[in-house]
């Protein structure tokens, strides 16, 4: 595209971000400040993720962008088109074909590989921000690995609700050292972060923080011995493809209480349907 540098950001900015990324990879889970730029989309729409993606993208990369697991929602479509125009890179919706995956709120169902990078859009990088309002104090707590307070939150949940009630953005310990927010992915996806072969990068544009999990790193969801971490999912198979092991979205279909549970990962669902799997509500797709 004329008048723009490759992948929108100028090279000096990319260099600054890459430097931050290197530091983040060297200290898994540690939040590294960076000079977040004004991007042509509002804060909260993925300004952090888009800057990280822009600074790691090469001409031969194949980009996939998902929003809540779907390739066809506004955020995903516009960011994918943004990079198709400003970088001219190939884009895809197939998880297996992508080399860089930018995501909001989900990790793809398909196991990622060592030659892939997943970039998370992060609204709030500080896992302790609801518990301790002072950023000076939370920095000190990270520095001293003083994370009793996070467990106090879990304790309060159990004593009030009988269980840990965090369903998304479930706090994790990275490499047994840093407490980290996994971004607002469902707790269902937390186990996928543990020992993931792909490099995981996190960008928070408004909060101006980058962090990372290198491949094959231990990521443990916080819990108690007698209240172990467990994932929560709707107790249904996918209505379209019949999958029982994927994260489901509930879709209201009419005004009479009709609802449909479908895979939130649209690529996963489409792939299964193409392979001949049919759910109870999936006959139309099967007939096509």
């Amino acid at each position: 595209m004329k008048g723009y540098n490759f992948a929108y950001l100028d090279e000096q900015t990319k260099r600054m971000i890459r430097r931050g990324l290197l530091k983040a990879v060297a200290i898994p889970g540690h939040q590294v400040p960076f000079g977040s730029r004004e991007m042509p989309l509002p804060y909260g729409w993925g300004t952090g993720g888009i800057q990280v993606t822009a600074s790691i993208l090469g001409a031969n990369d194949v980009l996939k962008v998902i929003d809540q697991g779907a390739d066809d929602t506004t955020n995903a479509v516009s960011i994918r088109r943004f990079f198709a125009r400003t970088a001219g890179v190939a884009t895809t919706t197939a998880t297996a074909e992508a080399t860089v995956i930018q995501t909001r709120h989900r990790i793809p169902e398909k196991q990622l590989r060592e030659d892939q990078i997943i970039v998370y859009q992060v609204p709030q990088p500080e896992p302790l921000f609801r518990l301790e309002s002072s950023r000076v104090e939370t920095k000190r707590m990270h520095g001293l690995s003083d994370y009793g307070l996070m467990h106090v939150k879990l304790y309060e949940d159990i004593s009030r609700f009988g269980q840990i009630s965090i369903s998304y953005d479930y706090p994790v310990m990275v490499n047994e050292r840093y407490l980290m927010s996994p971004s607002p992915i469902p707790a269902f996806d937390n186990p996928k972060m543990d020992m993931m072969p792909a490099l995981q990068l996190f960008g928070a544009g408004r909060e101006k923080r980058i962090y990372a999990i290198p491949p094959w790193t231990r990521v443990k969801s916080l819990d108690f011995e007698d209240h172990p971490f467990r994932t929560i999912n709707a107790p249904h198979p996918c209505g379209l493809c019949g999958a029982t092991d994927s994260y489901l979205d509930e879709v209201v279909t009419d005004n009479h209480g009709g609802r449909l549970f479908v895979c939130s990962d649209t690529d996963h669902c489409a792939e299964r349907r193409a392979a001949g799997h049919v759910g109870t509500d999936g006959f139309q797709e099967a007939a096509e």
């Binding site: 307070l149 467990h151 159990i158 004593s159 007698d226």
Partner: peptide, 19 residues
Amino acid sequence: VSAGGNVGERLMAQGARHY
């Protein structure tokens, strides 16, 4: 934070992980 959470915080900070 509830009274119980207040009393338990130091234990949890020391690594107690059994609710």
